[in-house]
Design a protein around this nucleic acid. Structure first.
Lengths: 152, 152
DNA sequence: TCATATTAGTTACAATCGTAACTATTGATT
DNA sequence: AATCAATAGTTACGATTGTAACTAATATGA
């Protein structure tokens, strides 16, 4: 009941979390079954694959909202599979430039097919209008994310 | 780059996850600092507090998209704090009806004040229009969640 | 130049998590 | 009634996680 004007049903962190969890689980089952990939591994692979260039671990973390230790471990395990290679930066050797190998790109490509199918499924259950609204709202959150990386 | 028509920047699971993580972290820092609450504990407390009635652990899990072991552990620790009490169902003793104690309600009320402040902050950084769009989109996902509980 | 601060990334360790197996109870089928 | 299936919730255990401390490299600035 409305004790004091707060309604959980309108509270963004709660709603976003449960929606994210719900939407992620079905898809996770697919890439886990196909490639034995964990969620951080898929997210790392996706960040690299979609950027089409090399990225540092820190960039991947910022792009995916993953903790740096999560990224570090995902990078390690993708490297073990030879889906990713590291190259150290010549000017500043603290940086490692990470890029997919051909095998990694191939796997990514295959995963994008699953993803496209899943996205189409979502589109049809949510409806185009609500999907569009969701995209608009998420874009705003993403803007806020970029700002908060820049500032503070 | 756009290898085959898939764009990670439009892929819902990825976007929802990173937005949820981003938005949740700042708020989690607050309830952790104030009450030493974990995320599952806050979510369980919130589900109960906002419903204003008793719920079973399964209902809480469905409402919050939390795994049943997460709920089970959160319920246990809230019970330890005397913020929640269990009552067994007379007709079917598999069910436990969970409800907040007065102390639990008091804590919930205090947390809703933090939540309201945080929500206001979000509203001002996202803007009213985009916030509204996000709410519309999330509502659609929530409808899909309810259906998938009903079916299959 | 030397000390101090900052940043990228890794890792030890304790805490948390999910899978699968479990107990307990009820429902369904014969 | 007796069996078998289904459901609510818990728990053992191995896997995954985040915190904090660490290494290594670079930047800052007296």
């Amino acid at each position: 009941m409305a004790e004091n004007g707060f309604e959980l049903e309108t509270f963004l962190p709660y709603r976003l979390n449960r929606a994210a969890e719900f939407v992620a689980l079905r898809f996770a089952a697919q890439y886990k079954a196909r490639f034995q990939l964990t969620r951080p591994e898929w997210r790392t692979l996706a960040a690299l694959g979609s950027s089409g260039r090399s990225m540092t671990a820190t960039e991947i973390g910022a792009h995916s909202s993953m903790h740096k230790t999560k990224v570090s471990r995902a990078v390690f395990s993708l490297e073990q599979r030879r889906w990713l290679k590291r190259e150290e930066d010549g000017r500043d050797r603290r940086f490692e430039h990470l890029a997919l190998t051909p095998a990694g790109e191939q796997a990514y490509k295959e995963l994008t097919e699953l993803a496209k199918r899943y996205q189409a499924e979502l589109l049809s259950t949510l409806g185009a209008d609500d999907m569009e609204a969701l995209a608009t709202g998420l874009r705003a959150v993403e803007r806020a994310m970029k700002k908060s990386v820049a500032g503070e």
